[in-house]
Design a protein around this nucleic acid. Structure first.
Length: 410
RNA sequence: GCGGGCGUAGCUCAGUCGGUUAGAGCGCCAGAUUGUGGCUCUGGAGGCCGUGGGUUCAAAUCCCAUCGCUCGCCCCA
C-alpha cells in the first residue's frame, strides 16, 4: 500500500460517514432548541490567537500545533480547538453589543499527536459557547444541552458526568500557591512527569495516574478549601440547577483543566468504553479568555465534544434513507426512466437508476443498495401508462398507474 | 517524545519443521435465469506475503533495519 492519508488522518465514508453525520445532525437539532446559532470559523488562524488563549506553556501550544508560515510570510496555525476562534470572531464582528451570545460549531481540528484509539491528528468536534453570561444558570444550561445530546444519541448510559470548580481567579491562584508549596516538599518523590508538571501546571498532578503521585496527593490541600464566598456560592448554584433538572453528576475534586483560561466550573462527560481516551464532552467556564485575547472582560462557558468518540459509542449505524430502484426493461423504458427518476428526485424521493445491466442485475442491485421498492416497467407498461411496483421486503408486486406512483411509494 | 503488540487478496484470517504453482470464508464480476432480487450451483478476476537488506541449494516462514498500523504513557475531544 503506497498511497495513504497522512498519519492520524482518516477518509470518512460509508458507515463512518453515516455515524459522523448522525452525531452532528442530532447535536444541531438539540442546540437549536437552546437557541444556539451556528458559527463556522476558518480552520486556520494567526498563530497568536491560539498561543495567547491557550497559554504558551500548554502542551497544545508548545508541541501539538500545526503551525506554518504561509507564502505571504504570515504565521498561521490549523486550529487545535475552536473556542479561541469563536471568541476572536465575536471580537472581529463586534458582536458583544448584544450579549448573551450562543454559538454552535462543528468541524475539523488538528493536533500533532501520536494517534491511538479515539485520538487523531485531524479529528472533528462539535461545541457550544455561551458568551456574556456570568450566572451559574449558564453553566447549567450548557451542561444540560450536552446531556440532552448524549441522550438523543442513545449513548447517555455509557457516559458519566463529573464536575468540579476551580473557583474564581483569586481562589484558583491562592490554591495553586498552596498546592505548589505542599508538593514542593515532595518534589524528589514525584514521578518524572509530575516534577515537570509542578513547574508548568501543578493542578494536573491531582489526577496523575502514577501510584506514588496518588499517595502524595491524598494529603494535599483541597481545592474546595481555597474557595472564597463567591466561588462557593457559584458552585453550589450550579449543582443545585443540575439537581433540579435531574441530571446525575459526581463532584470530582481532581478534575482540573489543562488550559489556562478556565475559572469556576469544569466538567467532563466520560466513558470507560473507549480505552484511554475517556473524555467525550469536556468544558467549563472561561471568564478570563476574552481579556487574554485583547477584548473586554467577558464571561463565557462552553464545551467541546469529539465526534469520532461519540460515533464510536453509537450502538448501531443509522440507516441511510431507503431509495426506490428504477428497473427499466428495454431502450424505450430506459429513456423514460431517466425522466421518471428526475420527477421523483424533484419530489424528494431518493431514487436509484443504474446506467446499465440486464433486469436480473438491476434487481440484484436494487436489493444490494437496500431499496424498499423496485419500479419495473417495459414496453407493455409504457403502452398502458403503468409500472410494476414491487415491495422488496414482501415480494408483493402490483400494477400502479404511473400518475399514482408517488403516492403509492408512501 | 517514550514503551508494548501486529503487518499474507477489498474484508476477516489460515499457511505445519524453511521445501514445488501461496490458500479459505465473506465480498466483487459473470453464467445457470433474453421481463424480476434474496437461496442454490458453476466459473472468473483479484497477492511486490508492508519495504529494503542478510542467512540458505531454497524464505510468507529465520535475522537485521525501515515504514505503516495499533494499544498504552504524556496530553487531550
Amino acid at each position: 500500500m503506497q498511497l495513504r492519508p497522512p498519519r492520524g488522518t482518516h477518509d470518512l465514508y460509508g458507515d463512518d460517514a453515516l455515524r459522523h453525520r448522525h452525531v452532528v445532525e442530532t447535536a444541531r437539532r438539540v442546540v437549536g432548541c437552546y437557541g444556539y446559532g451556528e458559527m463556522a470559523t476558518p480552520i486556520f488562524e494567526f498563530t497568536g490567537v491560539f498561543a495567547r488563549s491557550l497559554g504558551e506553556t500548554s502542551d497544545v501550544v508548545s508541541k501539538e500545533m500545526y503551525t506554518f508560515t504561509d507564502r505571504g510570510g504570515e504565521e498561521v496555525t490549523l486550529r487545535p480547538e475552536n473556542t479561541a476562534s469563536v471568541m476572536r470572531a465575536i471580537l472581529t464582528g463586534g458582536l458583544l453589543q448584544s450579549v448573551p451570545l450562543r454559538f454552535f460549531y462543528a468541524g475539523p481540528m488538528f493536533r500533532y499527536e501520536r494517534p491511538q484509539k479515539g485520538r487523531l491528528r485531524q479529528f472533528h468536534q462539535i461545541g457550544v459557547e455561551l458568551v456574556g453570561a456570568a450566572e451559574p444558570f449558564g453553566d447549567v444550561e450548557v451542561i444540560a444541552c450536552g446531556q440532552q445530546i448524549l441522550e438523543e444519541l442513545g449513548i447517555a448510559p455509557l457516559v458519566r458526568l463529573d464536575i468540579n470548580s476551580l473557583g474564581n481567579p483569586l481562589s484558583r491562584a491562592r490554591y495553586r500557591d498552596q498546592l505548589t508549596a505542599y508538593l514542593a516538599r515532595y518534589r524528589a518523590e514525584l514521578s518524572e512527569d509530575s516534577q515537570r508538571r509542578l513547574e508548568r501546571n501543578p493542578l494536573r498532578i491531582l489526577d496523575s495516574k502514577d501510584e506514588g503521585d496518588r499517595r502524595i496527593v491524598q494529603d494535599a490541600p483541597h481545592l474546595a478549601g481555597a474557595y472564597d464566598d463567591e466561588s462557593r456560592y457559584f458552585f453550589a448554584a450550579v449543582q443545585d440547577g443540575l439537581a433540579r433538572l435531574g441530571i446525575a453528576f459526581t463532584v470530582n475534586p481532581s478534575l482540573v483543566r489543562g488550559l489556562d483560561y478556565y475559572t469556576h466550573t469544569a466538567f467532563e462527560f466520560t466513558t470507560d468504553a473507549l480505552g484511554a481516551q475517556g473524555a467525550v464532552i469536556a468544558g467549563g467556564r472561561y471568564d478570563g479568555l476574552m481579556e487574554q485575547l485583547g477584548g473586554p472582560a467577558t464571561p463565557g462557558v462552553g464545551w467541546a465534544a469529539g465526534i469520532e468518540r461519540m460515533a464510536l459509542l453509537l450502538a448501531e449505524t443509522p440507516a441511510a434513507p431507503a431509495p426506490v430502484a428504477l428497473v427499466p426493461i428495454g431502450e424505450a423504458a430506459e429513456a423514460e426512466a431517466l425522466v421518471l427518476a428526475a420527477e421523483l428526485r424533484r419530489a424528494h424521493v431518493p431514487c436509484d437508476l443504474a446506467f446499465k445491466g440486464k433486469t436480473g442485475q438491476r434487481m440484484k442491485r436494487a436489493d444490494r443498495i437496500g431499496a424498499r421498492f423496485a419500479v419495473v416497467f417495459g414496453e407493455d407498461e409504457l403502452q398502458a401508462g403503468t409500472v410494476q411496483l414491487k415491495d422488496l421486503q414482501t415480494g408483493d408486486q402490483r400494477v400502479v398507474a404511473r400518475a399514482d406512483l408517488r403516492q403509492s411509494l408512501e
